[in-house]
């Protein structure tokens, strides 16, 4: 829309106006075809037959239970990974110990593991023929095809986010303020709550958002260990697939819409809270 404006143009840049519009079109058309139109299509498809079937699918007890389970799992996994993430980041930035680089590499491992392999690995430990399978069966503890394995799978896939977001923030703020607090007689615990945590709040929040997004949206790992028992171990993502396989497209689209709206809210939050170096 800048065609009417005259702007200062670098000597060699005059001929590049055409290429600029060309690149802009390539980028926008690609994004439209692969991202915007498909996601928009789900909104359209969900409400294709009006509001009534959507409301019906939303109030379906299985959908509601799936939503409840998804939120419950996230409510367990996200706090655990947050505490672990902050603790681990503090350890890696503020303390010296041998094998630190190795530990840092280990933290990233979940990013490199396929969700299917995560599910498989939990079955091989907690499943009927797994390492702990016999012992668990004797004691009547159900892990696979039950909540514990779904929580474990979710913690696995969303583990690195908080650490990765908090480490650079901790490196940037340094230790002067903490040392000052220490000199003034604050206990380590007081220093953490009053000085360190407020200083890294941005990084922690951003990490928590990413962890939550991953925890709410995990499908592969959870679906393998859940056994997909409708109304019992179906999370919202598993419910989407199950409804789709049952040819209940309205049900599948409605649950997808709920997840898509959550994703859009998360993207909005990410944009507002994005760490500064990416925005300037």
């Amino acid at each position: 829309m800048s065609s009417g404006r005259t702007e200062p143009v670098a000597p060699g840049a005059r001929g590049s106006r055409a290429s600029r519009y060309g690149l802009r079109s390539v980028a926008l058309v690609y994004l439209a075809l692969i991202l915007v139109l498909p996601v928009g299509m789900v909104f359209f498809r969900t409400f294709e037959n009006g509001l009534q079937p959507v409301l019906q699918a939303l109030s379906d007890p299985e959908t509601l239970h799936a939503l409840y389970l998804t939120v419950l799992i996230a409510a367990i996994a996200v706090p655990l990974n947050t505490v672990f993430g902050v603790f681990c980041a503090l350890l890696m930035v503020r303390r010296t110990f041998p094998g630190k680089a190795f530990l840092s590499g280990l933290i990233d491992v979940p990013f490199a593991v396929s969700p299917v392999v995560v599910g498989l690995s939990l079955i091989l430990v907690y499943g009927r023929t797994g390492w702990l399978g016999g012992w668990l069966a004797e004691n009547g503890i159900r892990v696979i095809f039950a909540l514990p394995s779904m929580v474990l799978a979710t913690i696995f896939v969303s583990l690195p986010f908080v650490v990765r977001e908090v480490v650079p923030v901790l490196q940037e703020i340094g230790v002067e303020q903490d040392q000052a607090a220490h000199t003034l007689g604050a206990t380590p615990w007081q220093t953490f709550w009053r000085i360190t945590l407020p200083a890294i709040r941005g990084g922690v929040t951003y990490g928590v958002i990413l962890t939550t997004a991953r925890a709410l949206g995990e499908f592969g790992a959870v679906s393998i260990v859940s056994g997909k028992i409708a109304g019992q171990t179906s999370t919202l993502t598993v419910h989407v697939e199950e409804r789709f396989q049952q040819f209940d497209l309205v049900g599948a689209y409605t649950s997808s819409l709920v997840l898509a709206v959550i994703a859009l809210v998360i993207v909005l939050a990410m944009t507002v809270l994005k760490p500064k170096e990416a925005g300037s």
């Binding site: 299509m41 969700p115 997004a213 949206g217 697939e241 994703a263 993207v267």
Partner: peptide, 25 residues
Amino acid sequence: TIVNALIDLPFALPTIVAGLTLLAL
């Protein structure tokens, strides 16, 4: 700004929903 924000959508959107959206189109 909106386009820039949308780039992160695939990270936030559950993969099964991504599959369904592509199938819808």
